[in-house]
């Protein structure tokens, strides 16, 4: 890139832009339209990585790396933690609280996009300078020179902001324990007093072949027992009933065994 104003980037960059730009837009659309929050988070992480590549292509080497480390590394992982905490299966309610809100929102988005693109199209941005001169002493050095001179107050205030955010997060998520934690002996005595379930809760699993924790154990009469599945899974409605399935499997196994035995008998004869 020359120091004088240029009118076009290299063909390689154009190719990169069209390929990765498509990926970024598809990732953004998937973020909005995926049903599960985990899928949205992963699509957003993909879009952010593509944006990091664009930063690098635009001469913002420091920001490109920071984008990967901070956004895809820290922020998206924080999102995934919260998704796990809040529950992966917490699906979106499809009921509209305001009638026709979805279509109006889409219409608003479309209008807003057209407005933005028209604004960019009307601006005279045909030539660009390029960062060759600004980056001549190194991108990080250039940024540092600006941060510690022109933007030093903003930088200091950023420190205050980060501290406030960290304290705020702690205050918001911290729960003060108002009563003493009950000891094991007290819990055992309470169980005896109530007389409901003295021994430990029964283990999940049906027969020996389904020992997954989301499969309830069967009572002697063949009905699944809700008590055997963890309370969290019960609340999420993630109990898998395989009592029929297990019987079908057993039938299939017996049939196959019979066929094989029959064939072997034939060979022996």
């Amino acid at each position: 890139m020359t120091d004088v104003a240029a009118y076009a980037t290299s063909t390689g960059e154009a190719f990169q832009f069209w390929v990765l730009g498509t990926v970024a837009v598809v990732g953004a659309l998937c973020t909005v339209f995926m049903k599960k929050a985990v899928h949205s988070a992963l699509c957003l992480a993909g879009t952010m990585i593509v944006l990091a590549v664009f930063y690098l292509a635009n001469g913002a080497y420091f920001l490109g790396i920071v984008q990967i480390v901070v956004y895809t590394g820290a922020i998206m992982m924080l999102f995934l933690f919260v998704v796990m905490l809040v529950g992966v299966t917490a699906a979106d309610s499809l009921k509209e609280t305001i009638k026709g809100q979805r279509w109006l929102a889409l219409l608003c988005g479309l209008g807003f996009g057209i407005l933005l693109c028209a604004g960019i199209g009307n601006a005279s941005l045909q030539e660009f300078n390029g960062l060759a001169q600004a980056n001549s002493g190194g991108n990080v050095e250039g940024l540092a020179a600006l941060i510690f001179t022109k933007y030093v107050f903003a930088f200091e205030i950023t420190g205050a902001l980060l501290i406030t955010a960290a304290i705020g997060a702690m205050v918001l998520t911290h729960r003060e324990r108002t009563e003493r934690a009950r000891t094991q002996r007290e819990l055992a005595e309470q169980r005896v007093r109530e007389g409901k379930q003295l021994p430990p809760l029964p283990a999940p699993g049906v027969y020996a072949r389904h020992n997954a924790v989301d499969v309830p154990g069967l009572l002697p009469d063949g009905t699944p027992s809700e008590l055997t599945v963890s309370r969290t899974l019960r609340e999420r409605g993630q109990i898998r009933d395989v009592s029929d399935e297990a019987i079908q499997d057993l039938k299939a196994l017996e049939q196959r065994a019979g066929e094989r035995l029959g064939r072997e008998e034939g060979v022996a004869k």
Partner: peptide, 17 residues
């Protein structure tokens, strides 16, 4: 290609968001 295209992409992503 002109770097203006990056602005169009940014506008599109902002609108989607």
């Amino acid at each position: 290609m002109n770097p203006v295209n990056y602005l169009y992409l940014a506008a599109l992503l902002f609108t989607i968001g």
